[in-house]
């Protein structure tokens, strides 16, 4: 789990061009949208691409997937749950 969290942080920094942020600056439990990292809807699309390109996870229902996008940890848990299937 910790390895996926670290990997996700690096992928987020690269894909979203968070140039002033280092992986250790990202709290895995902090919200990704609004507060915390302050991401928006365009970033959400970029995260969907990260899941699809790097983990082979295709979101069929984005509304249902919303809770998984709360933080880096919830995203990592979602990745692990999908890989176990």
């Amino acid at each position: 789990m910790e390895q996926i969290i670290q990997q996700l942080k690096e992928q987020l920094i690269e894909a979203l061009n968070l140039e002033e942020i280092k992986p250790e600056d990202i709290d895995p439990d902090a919200p990704l949208f609004g507060d915390g990292l302050g991401l928006d809807s365009i970033d959400a699309l970029e995260i969907i691409l990260i899941l699809e390109k790097n983990y082979g996870i295709r979101l069929e229902n984005t509304a249902e997937a919303k809770p998984h996008f709360y933080s880096v940890r919830t995203l990592a848990q979602y990745i692990v749950s999908q890989q176990d299937k």
Partner: peptide, 9 residues
Amino acid sequence: ELLNPTPFI
């Protein structure tokens, strides 16, 4: 497929 939105915008 799977095109990043930011460079397009």
